[in-house]
């Protein structure tokens, strides 16, 4: 995003709307300006319609800056060439033909929200993606609201890969890896900043403690935060096998979160 200096009146109303506080007052002109390297192209400042003279302008993006939008604006279609194979419908293809302003001006865009993760456990009753005896894990790098760069992501993926973790192939992050075995990302994207990027994988329950411990270590080596998700099939008696393992490490699983309530049919095998 950019702010057209000649249109900006210097009212500064747009400043607080930016999730990464990338809109600041220029010391010389006293008008609002966007720190380009900190902007994640989420489109919030534009969608907020807070600028009377319409000085906030969504410029078209080029690779690798397209990644900022793709990992920050949940309604954005895949635009980067690296995600070409993910354009699976005519609808998505049509979105891709729009310029940035048209994309942000869409009405009813909620229907296109797909996020940048996968359906994880939301259809586990019907798809059985997470089996008994395994734990699903995710590190949502940059959440909540801090943002991150792909170099932070790479620090985490390399640490996890060293334990033999297999990254979820359906997650778009996997497309950005040059070596999935080592968790190495493309060199040309490492400085790109975004709101969140989800590292998804699952592990056998017997490896869960080891992997969580490694995640805790690597969290100290990055310049941002990540939110941690822990997924488990619920036992017949209502107990949750991942909880005691997490608690044994001094972790406190949340009191609130997501429950797949088992209404999907037909039920998938979990063995």
């Amino acid at each position: 995003m950019i702010i057209k200096e000649d249109l900006c009146t210097g009212c500064l109303e747009c400043l607080p709307y930016c999730p990464t506080q990338a809109i600041v007052q220029d010391a010389k002109t006293e008008r609002a300006t966007i720190v380009e390297d900190e902007c994640v192209e989420c489109g919030v400042c534009y969608r907020a319609r807070v600028c009377g003279p319409d000085a906030i302008y969504p410029q078209d993006l080029e690779w690798p800056r397209t990644l900022r939008m793709e990992f920050s604006d949940p309604s954005a279609p895949y635009m980067s060439p690296v995600f070409e194979h993910r354009i699976i419908s005519r609808f998505q293809a049509d979105l891709r033909e729009m310029d940035r302003r048209q994309l942000l001006d869409r009405e009813g865009e909620a229907l296109t929200i797909s996020g940048r993760g996968t359906i994880e456990m939301k259809m586990n009753d019907m798809m059985g993606r997470f089996k008994r005896g395994r734990a699903g894990l995710a590190a949502e790098v940059g959440r909540p609201g801090i943002g991150a760069r792909f170099r932070d992501v790479q620090t985490v993926t390399r640490a996890l890969a060293s334990l033999g973790v297999k990254f979820e192939p359906q997650n778009p992050l996997t497309d950005l890896m040059t070596d999935i075995q080592t968790g190495t990302l493309r060199e040309d994207i490492l400085n790109e900043k975004f709101l969140s990027c989800i590292i998804e994988f699952d592990v056998p329950l017997e490896d869960l403690a080891k992997v969580l411990a490694r995640m805790r270590e690597v969290a100290q080596q990055i310049d941002t935060v990540f939110a941690v998700d822990l997924i488990s099939v619920v036992n017949e008696d209502g107990s949750i096998p991942t909880v005691p393992i997490a608690e044994s490490l001094g972790l406190e699983p949340s009191i609130a979160g997501k429950t797949n309530v088992g209404l999907g049919r037909p039920l998938a095998s979990l063995d």
Binding site: E120, V228, I231, L251
Partner: peptide, 11 residues
């Protein structure tokens, strides 16, 4: 409840 997703917080 079939499957749950807990948050382990922010690290």
């Amino acid at each position: 409840a079939h499957t749950v997703n807990h948050s382990l917080g922010f690290w």
